[in-house]
Design a protein around this nucleic acid. Sequence first.
RNA 1: CGGGCCGUAGUAUACCGGUAGUACACCUGCUUUGGGAGCAGGUUGACCGAGUUCGAUUCUCGGCGGCCCGACCA
Length: 424
Amino acid sequence: MKHPTYSARQSQLFTKTRKEAPKDEVSKNAQLLIRAGYVHKEMAGVYAYLPLGLRVQNNIKEIVREEMEKIGGQEIIMTSLQRKELWEKTKRWDDEVVDVWFKTELKAGGDIGLAWSHEEPIADMMKNYVASFRDLPIFVYQFQTKLRNELRAKSGIMRGREFVMKDMYSFCLDEAEHTRFYNSTIEAYKRVYERLGIGADTFVTFASGGAFTQFSHEFQTIAETGEDVIYINREKGIAINEEVLNEATLKELAITRADLEEVKTAEVGNIFNFGTQKSEDLGLFYTNDKGEQIPVWMGSYGIGITRVMGLLAEKFSDAKGLVWPEQVAPFRVHLVELQSDNVDVRAEAAEVYRELTEAGVPVLWDDRDVRAGEKFADSDLIGIPLRVVVSEKTLAAGKFECVHRQGGRVEHKSMSELLGQLTA
RNA sequence: CGGGCCGUAGUAUACCGGUAGUACACCUGCUUUGGGAGCAGGUUGACCGAGUUCGAUUCUCGGCGGCCCGACCA
């Protein structure tokens, strides 16, 4: 499934567009998404996803899901309430160690944590399913809402206190098996960013944070709104986060500072090698063919789904509003009818709506009783890739006016030509 | 967590120690109908608490909330 195939009538959509963004919302992504009715700000760093926004989020998830399944991922969903003792085993319950915890307690007594990550619970859970070397490897992933008590939320939906993340975890026999999967994940991530339309601007970047290796890998996308600075060499395909840019790193990567270009980026993914430390702390072992107890080799792999959505909103927008790439747009066609006293535009639009929808093309039909200018302005703001206008004029011509949101190219097509193009 | 700015209608803003105004939105009517229409009428508001005062939305203090800069950011 590439898109939800259902269509919608705009007169039934409860959200409305706004001419102005709330004054306290400074980030471009949230301004656009709020104005166009994709999200609702509940509090600082906490956003609800409305019909349009949820469709975009789901489209992004679907792309990620397909690529995770291709490399053997099995989808699950962990819990948001977590046990204190698991995090104590890895010494990460302490607020001095992890400063983003939301914690609460059960009425029956006992502290619990609200999920900011799932590494400990998932490793512990796997003790139920991993006993023999025959049980490995295992790759699982989920789309989960993470709760992080950030001191300062900012950048709209790109750095919130509540956000959706795809996190995957690998459980392998040994380092060699882990490395094979780790590398396949890098390739899968590249395909994800390619499909999201940011492949050319996204770099696999050396960063700090590996438990057993010198580096972890971050996926960094060039963006004005970014919080990171990285150094890239496009020819050699090398990218280095400034946090690990030093003489030793340059030497290891056989490159000089002069060969590197400084760019501002947003982190859209990060992958880690945990080695066996976490398994040892939590007691996740398997029995090898010699009867020995061996700790499982773990890795984790994240993509910030809602952060990517914010990034796309910023990168793919212009003065008039959002300009979604085809693959993530909430609908493929924005059908705009312009009413007329002389001919039955509504009936014609209904026919287009029906035919496209039956052909599997999701359509947002602007059947509202408002003026043309407002419809066009809203259509530009919402940013659906193709606008199909039905009006007295197009009926007389026998062809619909098709306007591409990106670039503004205008074509005139008959129903069959339009269907052919959209279902090709 | 340090520093700064700020809370007035659904949104954006104005004024004011003495009955809070405008624009957009919303409702009614008429006109209009290919780029956020016009006219007429209407609905909607001072974050919470304490203090000062004859009187506080305005001044003071506290709380709560928001934004920005920095720090932080598996």
